[in-house]
Design a protein around this nucleic acid. Structure first.
Length: 109
DNA sequence: CTGGTGACCGCTT
DNA sequence: AAAGCGGCCACCA
C-alpha cells in the first residue's frame, strides 16, 4: 500500500526536532517531491494530530509564519516557537540558524 | 460526480 | 530586474 502524500508529510513534520524549524519546500522535498509544497500546506491545515504534528515549526521559504496558522492566534505560533528556543524576528525566523538541516544534510551526503 | 481552492515553490517570459 | 503562472495532493460545495 502506498502511503498517501499526507502520511509522508506528517512523518517528516513529526521528525522535526525541538528548537528547529522546517520549510514547506524542505518538508515537501523530504516527502518525495518539492511540488508537494502546496500539499504540505494543506496537510498541516488538516492537521489531524496537532499533538504529534508541530505545524508551528513549519514555516514558508522565507521563514515567515503564515497568518492562516491562527489556530489560536497567529502570535500563538510565535509564542510556541519561542518556547522551543527559536527566536523570531517579528513573524520571521533565522533560517540560517534554526532551519532544520538535520535531514537535509543526509540528503547532501 | 465535477469544479474549485488552498498555510507553497520554482520556473518562464 | 520583476511579475505572472503552473504544478502536485486532498478536501469542500
Amino acid at each position: 500500500m502506498n502511503k498517501s502524500a499526507f502520511e509522508l508529510i506528517y512523518d517528516v513534520v513529526k521528525e522535526i526536532p525541538k528548537g528547529k524549524v522546517a520549510t514547506y519546500g524542505q518538508v515537501a522535498a523530504l516527502a518525495g517531491n518539492k511540488n508537494w509544497s502546496r500539499v504540505v500546506g494543506y496537510a498541516l491545515h488538516a492537521n489531524p494530530d496537532p499533538e504529534h504534528i508541530p505545524c508551528h515549526r513549519v514555516v514558508n521559504r522565507l521563514g515567515e509564519v503564515s497568518s492562516a496558522f491562527a489556530f489560536g492566534g497567529e502570535n500563538r505560533q510565535i509564542a510556541l516557537l519561542e518556547g522551543e528556543g527559536v527566536k523570531l524576528e517579528g513573524n520571521r525566523v533565522d533560517l540560517e540558524k534554526y532551519r532544520w538541516n538535520a535531514v537535509t544534510m543526509e540528503m547532501m551526503e
